[in-house]
Design a protein around this nucleic acid. Sequence first.
DNA 1: GGTGCCGGGCA
DNA 2: TGCCCGGCACC
Length: 502
Amino acid sequence: MLSRRLGKRSLLGARVLGPSASEVPLGASLPLEPQVEVPEGAAPQPSLTSKDPVCQEQPKEVLKTLGTSGHPQVAFQPGQKVCVWYGGRECKGLVEQHSWPEDKVTVRLLDQKLQICCRVEEVWLAELQGTTSQVPTYRPVSRNIDVPKRKSDAVEMDEMMAAMVLTSLSCSPVVQSPPGAEPIFSVSRAACGDPWKESGDVSDSGSSTTSGHWSGSSGISTPSPPHPQASPKYLGDAFGSPQTDHGFETDSDPFLLDEPAPRKRKNSVKVMYKCLWPSCGKVLRSIVGIKRHVKALHLGDTVDSDQFKREEDFYYTEMQMKEESALAVAAPPAPGTPNGEPAPTSRVTSPSLAALSLPPPKVQSSGPEHSGLESPLPSVALSKSAPGSFWHIQADHAYQALPSFQIPVSPHIYTSISWAAASTTTSPLSPVRSRSLSFSEPQQPPPTVKSHLIVTSPPRAQSSSRKARGEAKKCRKVYGIEHRDQWCTACRWKKACQRFLD
DNA sequence: GGTGCCGGGCA
DNA sequence: TGCCCGGCACC
């Protein structure tokens, strides 16, 4: 499960070049190979020769990124009946010529009176069709995943969004492909006619791949395209409007209306989730939202097969960004300015890492949620006025800011924080009294550990959540309600009195 | 019921 | 962050 999750969650898995079909059986997990190899190795260029004008009419549906690493091929004989993928469907034809050095087969289509030139792996014997053992190594459907037809301007958005995704992923320790890889890919894809664009309606009926989303064969393996039944709103949102498709979405997302917005009172680090779907990059604030986004927009809502369940888990990544960065993200960068790319300040987990780090939102919540008294802040330098009021000021400051370990009771006497019982018989404002502070010490283990350190600690409240009522008089009692203005700030705010600490 | 104060809302 | 208050537990 985990391995599967890791593999799926990996963005590399979203768009990687795996070995050819002969090297990896169908259904096997894809190896993590940087996508940057696309332009280098098996050239993702048309697999057909350009010498034959007919070849230039080769259907663009045919995936053009087949690996050429020499896997065994069938030797086609002239006149042999074969099947070839053409025009989005299988066509029967006769082998005209099989050029071994080029691994090309010239096939004359029977029904279209055409002669096409294609790779060996794109051709399979007609008489073997239907037998599983001889399923041709090239099945376009399994490698060229359906993508809905796009408008022409979608190409620009593709590049932009791809750059966004890649930029964010460039921080990943797993992905090390240079940032230029993705644009190269996009450009080449666009240059070669954008096979995504025209292959949207290719049926997957003949494919026996495991999930339909992932191909075990070579070539540009991409996840399944947006489901054609996805709501038009989201289709338009994701593909139609570059202005709004920077992947940033606030809680106005109707999908998120039913989930509580995370408290942003104290958390400075915000966890956001970014869709890793190619050319999407949508960023949502909640895991549920991103899952729904992936599911609804990319995987398709109506898919009910088990193989698609929780598939959306693998198409988003977790980002932790500072609050201001998150706000900056909320404002879409100007189109065409790559520097407007949201820069997660903390980290961007690769999909695989994100899988390990889930559930993420609690990661760094401990610090801000702690009360100020438990925060290991440095001593607050105080330059207060009269020594007589020093304690008062210090006490009040202790609530508003943070007390140091040694609280100056007077200019010469410091009271160390301890759990020792305080003498309540002394005058509350005596500058020489010994005082103990009952609030928790910073940088200390939980009270269970502390309790054995101080034998004389007063009985604490059994409830750890609520502080025991102190024995000392509080401002309310000392000054009375009529002199509320003389109370310490904490008392005025109905907080734990910081002037008459227990 | 009075009091202390935690938790949370609001500006 | 400062200020305020509801509500709860303790006395």
